[in-house]
Simulated scan of single mutants.
Amino acid sequence: MTEHIQFKRHRRLRSSASMRTMVRETHLHVEDFIYPIFVIEGENIKNEVPSMPAVYQFSLDRLMEEVTEAYELGIRSLMFFGVVTDKDEVGSGAYAEDGIVQRATKMVKEKYPDILVVADTCLCEYTSHGHCGVIHGEDVDNDKSLELLAKTAVSQAKAGADIIAPSNMMDGFVAVIRKALDKAGYTHIPIMSYAVKYASSFYGPFRDAADSTPQFGDRKTYQMDPANRLEAIREAQSDVEEGADFLMVKPALSYLDIIRDVRNEFNLPVVAYNVSGEYAMVKAASQNGWIDEDKLVIEMLTSMKRAGADIILTYFAKDVAKTLSNQ
């Protein structure tokens, strides 16, 4: 019946597992991942985050357990988030030389100097109000916040951070941080800008883990409207002009189109943040037996890389490293 009909035989390249592997266009590698870790004040603490199964808060005396496991799996990039009880209006714990993240950074770099420590540069985990800067009235004062964010970046670089990753979404943050790093002698330290960060509902579990929920209002005056696409290019363009070395899109899964836009528009490395809500949904579905978690996670992270991400910041880093090793 089909002998006189001309059509393409696309299935020829799907005929076996070996054939499919040979022609596969997008590959995940353990080197693609940055693994986030929550570091909490206190001793002998390993607290599982209720909304993020298999994600824990570690006190400094137990931190190396997690770091060593990640290292042995081939993970060479980490990001630390501090969980503190002593907070104030200006988030002074973020830029304290003996701050918890600064101490964690020094500890890790001393034992594993080849690990890249990426420093999340923000104030929300350290402010009593939970916002990412200095409050004036009921709003965040952009320019006053920049001064403190610059101090935070310099303190993180001094502690040994290899990359500064500002996540605050203040206007001009890349320019001010770049100037401060250069003035302090850290001209060699790159900036991984959270260039495109949306005011997303996918951040809920993180705010539980880091105790960073705003005490009033929301972050919609400084984080982006999820409905906007062109604005993402304007935000990223500003950061490129101000000296960013990497461009991050956060969240990732519902913003694959934005990742592709940023990839097409700029030639800097693109980072996708596979955020806490995306992680928690997969874990919840897996615990209910609704999905094959390992296969779904590989598919999900592959979609981010296929969309244009060079690097993926993900809580699944250890899980995927194990899966890739088994493959």
Rank of each mutant, 00 (worst) to 15 (best):
E3G: 10
F7A: 15
R9A: 15
R12F: 13
L13F: 15
S18A: 14
M19G: 12
M19I: 13
E31S: 15
F33I: 00
F38H: 11
E41Y: 11
E43M: 05
N44D: 15
K46D: 07
V49A: 08
Y56K: 06
E69G: 07
A70I: 03
L78T: 09
F80C: 11
F80M: 08
G82E: 03
G82W: 02
E89M: 04
V90N: 09
S92Y: 02
G93E: 08
A104C: 09
M107C: 09
M107I: 12
D114R: 05
C124N: 04
Y126Q: 05
Y126F: 08
T127I: 04
H129C: 04
C132M: 03
G133C: 00
G133R: 02
G133H: 01
V134C: 01
I135L: 12
E138V: 03
E138K: 10
V140Q: 06
D141H: 11
D141A: 12
L149G: 01
T152V: 01
V154T: 04
S155V: 04
Q156T: 07
A159D: 10
P166Y: 02
N168C: 15
M169E: 11
M170P: 00
G172F: 07
A175H: 10
V176K: 15
K179R: 14
K179T: 12
T187R: 15
T187W: 13
I189C: 14
S193C: 03
A195S: 15
V196K: 13
K197A: 12
F206I: 05
R207Q: 13
R207Y: 06
R207H: 07
R207D: 07
A209P: 07
T213V: 14
Q215G: 14
K220M: 13
K220A: 14
K220L: 11
T221E: 15
Q223F: 08
A227I: 13
E231N: 11
A232Y: 11
R234T: 11
L247T: 03
P251A: 11
S254C: 09
Y255R: 05
D261Y: 09
D261L: 08
N264I: 01
L268Q: 00
V270Y: 02
V275F: 02
G289Q: 06
W290K: 01
E293M: 11
K295D: 09
K295V: 09
L296C: 08
L301W: 03
T302S: 10
S303M: 09
M304Y: 02
A307V: 03
L313W: 00
D319V: 00
T323S: 13
N326S: 13
Q327C: 09
